[in-house]
Computed example of a mutant assay.
Amino acid sequence: MTDQPQLPFGTFDAFGPALDVVDQLAGPVADALKSWDDREAARSVLYVDTDPEKADTAVFCETYGVPPEASANCVVVAAKRGGGTTLAACLALATTRVDVNRAVRRHLEARKASFAPMDTAVAASGMEYGGITPVGLPADWPLLVDEAVAATPYVLVGSGRRRGKLILPGRVLAGLPGAVVLPDLAG
């Protein structure tokens, strides 16, 4: 990785612009970055190389010196209404939990909402479990972003794979396709 930018937090041996290492990203993530209309936003995304055995949030933050309040988790939710199921992604800081039963269900106008089964989330997103990220999600998925994520100067999220993470401004996440910022998504 060339032309090293400044990291906003953490200690990583290898990092740089995600656009320089699209081969390290899951296919949908690489495709999204390469085709992003907002080229400035695409260039603001950093990739940090990490050990996939240390991908879980608490271990990751401790290993790499990332403040948990700068790390966000992307979870896939299945919302049922009538006879159909809608998949949606929810993004909340690692220090909080997504309110699936009230906030998500209410926003998606669903009768019932729950975390999607792992195999469903992986198959539908095209990303690895433990690395699902809001960048490159299917176009028809709603992306619910907690307002605290949108207000965070820089946020660490998955890269679509268990190896590596992305760091980007919270405002960029709030501007992703299908994103809706909610004040009560997580608590």
Rank of each mutant, 00 (worst) to 15 (best):
G136V: 02
N73V: 05
S71W: 02
S125C: 00
V181G: 11
A41H: 07
V157D: 04
A174S: 09
G164M: 04
A186G: 12
F9Y: 13
A186T: 11
S159H: 00
A18P: 12
H107L: 06
A151N: 12
V155N: 00
D3P: 00
W141H: 03
E69V: 01
A148E: 03
K165L: 07
A55K: 07
P177F: 01
P134A: 01
V76N: 06
W141Y: 02
A179G: 09
D119C: 07
T63G: 02
A58L: 12
Y129A: 00
A179Q: 10
E53H: 14
I167G: 04
D20V: 00
T11D: 15
Y154C: 05
A186R: 07
D37C: 00
G65N: 13
V22T: 15
L19S: 06
T2E: 00
R39G: 03
G83F: 04
D51C: 13
A124S: 02
A72W: 10
D31K: 09
V66N: 03
R105M: 04
L185P: 13
A72E: 08
T57F: 14
D3L: 00
P134T: 02
T152Y: 04
D146W: 09
V149H: 05
V122E: 02
L176I: 08
G170S: 13
S71G: 04
R163C: 03
C90M: 09
V59H: 07
A42Y: 09
S159Q: 02
A78L: 12
D13Q: 10
